[in-house]
């Protein structure tokens, strides 16, 4: 009897393979970049949608693959729903790879908390700050902004910030840095960064500070630098920079010693510097970039360097007995770098 039932059950399983509330890909609008602005009544969203190969061509005869739309709503979800109705297709945020935050957003944690709802936006989505409304999303070449930012991060000119690190920092450090996106002559660039303290905008970090911070956050890969010593110049390509931090409690404060190790190769040596000279010059270059950056961000009281976490591990008594202001007040930095350059390319 049991054996007879099995084929019947197997046949029924064929009928169970469908979905009853499915949505075809053609009925979805895939958002690539989303710009978020606060309005008096709620949110204004600017979205760059992936259209696929469109049948319609523009004035120059090129077919467009992307489309910009703007929508408003009392809440983030409301604005997304309205966009779905307006476009006649379901808005899908699962492939969104960049979130542009307009200057009207005052409390980053509170206003962007909506992005956590329902896990609709991937945590790996990059966050950038606009110094104007989040209208850079409308720019023609904004689709390439993710790649531009990626290269900037790899070369040490910008810090990477994604949705995950934004919320991760919410309960731990209370400090965060978001790269600033700007459009000059229709070209997208990233310059400096917006320091966020407890969700509120703190100060703006300049390019030098951003570079210094990038060098210690392990995101830099194959950075090309030019080093100088005694009016001699050499080109160096550095690989990944490894970093350790050691904190020491002294009478006049906490000393955070950043120890950096890096390897690389000499790419250009027109003044025939010795390898030792180039190594020393590279070490000085790194120290000169990183030390002021550490002081800049600690002066602003924003813990983008995660020093509080380090103190929590290494100096728990000090950490538990001092507030944020006192911690940053007592903080002193020193940077020690060890650079080893490739022997084969010394000449």
């Amino acid at each position: 009897m049991k054996i007879k039932i099995i084929p019947v059950l197997l046949m029924i399983t064929v009928l169970l393979s469908g979905c009853n509330s499915y949505l075809e890909v053609s009925n979805r609008n895939f958002v690539q970049i989303i710009g978020i602005d606060k309005t008096r009544d709620g949110f204004s969203l600017t979205m760059k949608l992936f259209e696929g190969k469109s049948d319609s061509a523009d004035n120059q005869g090129k077919t467009k693959e992307v489309k910009n739309i703007t929508t408003e709503g009392k809440t983030f979800t409301d604005a997304v729903t309205k966009a779905s109705i307006k476009e006649g297709k379901k808005i899908f945020l699962g492939h969104c790879n960049m979130i542009a935050v307009g200057n009207s957003v005052e409390d980053v944690y509170k206003d962007l908390d909506c992005l956590l709802t329902g896990n609709t936006v991937p945590l790996s989505a990059k966050i950038v700050m606009c110094d104007s409304p989040a209208d850079f999303v409308n720019a023609e070449n904004s689709s390439v902004s993710v790649d531009i930012l990626k290269r900037k991060v790899e070369s040490g000119e910008a810090s990477e910030s994604n949705l995950f690190s934004l919320f991760e920092s919410k309960n731990t450090s209370g400090g965060f840095i978001i790269p600033i996106a700007e459009i000059k002559d229709k070209a997208i660039g990233f310059s400096g960064g917006q320091l966020i303290k407890n969700g509120k905008k703190s100060e703006c970090a300049d390019d030098k500070t951003m570079t210094g911070l990038s060098l210690i956050n392990n995101s830099v890969k194959n950075i090309m630098i030019s080093v100088q010593k005694d009016n001699k110049t050499a080109g160096v390509m550095l690989g990944t920079i490894k970093m350790k931090v050691k904190t020491t409690l002294k009478a006049d404060g906490i000393f955070a010693e950043y120890m950096l190790e890096t390897e690389g190769k000499v790419t250009d040596n027109p003044d025939l510097m010795t390898i030792n000279e180039i190594e020393k010059a590279t070490e000085k270059y790194l120290s000169d970039k990183i030390t002021p950056a550490l002081y800049d961000v600690s002066k602003a009281g924003t813990d983008v360097i995660n020093i509080k976490k380090i103190l929590k591990i290494q100096q728990p008594e000090f950490y538990n007995s001092h507030n944020d202001q006192q911690i940053f007040e007592f903080l002193r930095f020193s940077v020690k770098t060890t650079c080893t350059l490739d022997e084969q390319l010394k000449l």
């Binding site: 896990n119 945590l123 995950f164 919320f167 309960n171 731990t172």
Partner: peptide, 17 residues
């Protein structure tokens, strides 16, 4: 890290992250 306290199911979030 600190993201744990923001989500309902941290171990599930770990899988999705």
């Amino acid at each position: 890290g600190g993201y744990v306290s923001l989500v309902d199911y941290p171990f599930f979030s770990l899988a999705g992250f």
